[in-house]
């Protein structure tokens, strides 16, 4: 009996259980469940959003905050047809698309305004990589960033984007070829005096 009690305490609750707990409970219990979900995912969500928003921290935070708002609003309607992680990453990808579309529209309207500041403290290599990835079409950019997230498998990335794994791999191959070509061009340009 004691052993089983101890093991119950030791076993962490799954994401889905936490979400159900959040949807059903109220007050502190709900808050703790959400806090635990955030502890597990917020850091990675911010990383993904940062990549999708071309390194703009402000936009990434906006997208992630909107993601949490969606999660809170729709927690009761979560049907568990996919895992919680897939669901929340999918929402995050959609929110990043929206945020970037809004940003592009604003930029078009204020085409004379100054360009947004580069993220501070960014290494030259990282800035270069970010610039190259920003040059990819949207679909390929999302695939490249999701597939290179630590701990994200190709199957999970495909589920997040709602495309078959075969399509994901095709896009990934195409994107990597483009990136290599761009890298080579860049090297040649750098080598030319």
């Amino acid at each position: 009996m004691r052993t089983s009690m101890r093991s119950d305490k030791a076993t962490p609750r799954s994401d889905e259980e936490l979400l159900v707990g959040f949807a059903r409970a109220s007050g502190n219990t709900a808050r703790e469940a959400l806090q635990e979900l955030a502890r597990r995912h917020e850091h990675r969500l911010l990383g993904l959003a940062l990549g999708l928003c071309n390194g703009r921290e402000d936009l990434a935070q906006e997208a992630v905050q909107e993601t949490w708002i969606r999660v809170i609003r729709h927690a009761k309607t979560f049907r568990a047809r996919s895992s919680f992680a897939t669901w929340i990453y999918r929402i995050a990808v959609h929110r990043c698309r929206d945020v970037m579309a809004r940003e592009r529209a604003v930029a078009r309207r204020n085409s004379n305004a100054a360009t947004p500041p580069e993220p501070r403290g960014l290494g030259a290599e990282l800035a270069w990589a970010r610039g190259v990835v920003a040059g990819l079409p949207q679909g390929e950019r999302e695939v490249v960033l999701l597939c290179h997230m630590r701990g994200m498998t190709h199957e999970q990335a495909a589920a997040v984007l709602g495309i078959p794994p075969g399509t994901l791999k095709t896009r990934m191959t195409r994107a990597m070829q483009r990136l290599r070509r761009l890298a080579e061009l860049d090297d040649r340009a750098g080598a030319t005096p």
Binding site: G47, G55, M149, R150
Partner: peptide, 8 residues
Amino acid sequence: QLEHLTRW
């Protein structure tokens, strides 16, 4: 580099 792009 790509892996670094998705780190907060």
